[in-house]
Amino acid sequence: MSHVHDGAHESSHESSAGAANRVKTLVAALEAANVLTERELDETVESFLAHAQPANGARVVARAWVDDAFRERLLADGNAAVAELGIDLAHWAPVRLRVVANGPGRHNLIVCTLCSCYPLALLGPSPTWYKSDAYRSRAVRDPRGILAEFGTHVDAGVEITVWDSTAEVRYLVLPERPAGTESLSETELEALVTRNGLIGTALV
């Protein structure tokens, strides 16, 4: 099976050069047809990278850790709660945010088995492993094996729920507040939150 895996993972230099040429041709044709300009494409990427940041997800989590009422609103209606923090989720298309909370005996893991749906606005650009065939195929079958590859150990007694994202619904894991952080400020708590903690491949 390794031939499938190798091919699926990173494009070869040759196919990457081929894709680069196809993109060039396509952009030139779209520009000639007055559909868009190269400048608009550059601005699209710049604006995305400037606004879609894992720091947004960290802000949401830290607020939920310090404010129980916010936590309840976040779990009840993710879109409305993050809007309170000025975060707009409607990046590609309108999506519904569902926040799933880790707790004693309960761990959550996020995947998109069909493609790569991901809460971009809250986590920034998704990592290649999230989009890989290996993660997408195995997260739903062997979540503990996946976690082990990240060096993340979840006790056998802890139930793991795997959430499969769709075009309409995006998930975000609300990790447990680490023990011994009672004296930390909200900003200090934000610094403890990692992207992988919000996908569920790491503990916070």
């Binding site: 099976m1 060039k24 890989s132 195929s137």
Partner: peptide, 27 residues
Amino acid sequence: MGGQHGFGSLQIESGEPPFHHEWEARV
């Protein structure tokens, strides 16, 4: 792809850039 076998282990790249090639950002 959910549940399919045979796709091997994960390749986790630390400090991964948003895009690996300029054409990917264009796409």
